[in-house]
C-alpha cells in the first residue's frame, strides 16, 4: 500500500507546469507592485506640489506594469 503511494508520488512532478507558470506570474506581479509603491508615493508628492505633473506621474507609476505583461507570456508558453 505504502509502496504504491510512493510510486504514484514519484511519478507525478512536484509542481505542474501550469502551477509553476501561475507562481511566476504572481511573483512578477508582486515585484511590479513593490516597484509601484515607491514610484506612486513619489508621484503623489510631485502632483501635490504641481498639478501639471499628473500625466507624467500616472505614466511613470504604471510603467512597472510591463513586468506583469511580459510574465504573462509564460502562461501561453506552457
Amino acid at each position: 500500500m505504502y509502496a504504491l503511494l510512493q510510486e504514484a508520488q514519484a511519478a507525478a512532478p512536484a509542481l505542474e507546469p501550469t502551477a509553476a507558470a501561475a507562481i511566476a506570474v504572481g511573483l512578477a506581479a508582486f515585484g511590479a507592485g513593490y516597484a509601484e509603491r515607491g514610484i506612486g508615493a513619489a508621484a503623489m508628492g510631485a502632483i501635490a506640489e504641481d498639478n501639471d505633473l499628473f500625466v507624467n506621474g500616472l505614466i511613470l507609476t504604471v510603467l512597472p506594469e510591463t513586468l506583469v505583461i511580459l510574465a504573462l507570456v509564460v502562461v501561453f508558453l506552457v
Binding site: 514610484i39 508615493a41 513619489a42 503623489m44 508628492g45 501635490a48 504641481d50
Partner: peptide, 11 residues
C-alpha cells in the same frame, strides 16, 4: 516614506 517626502521637498 522617503519617496513621497523627497518628491515634495525637491519641488
Amino acid at each position: 516614506n522617503p519617496e513621497y517626502v523627497t518628491a515634495r521637498v525637491r519641488a
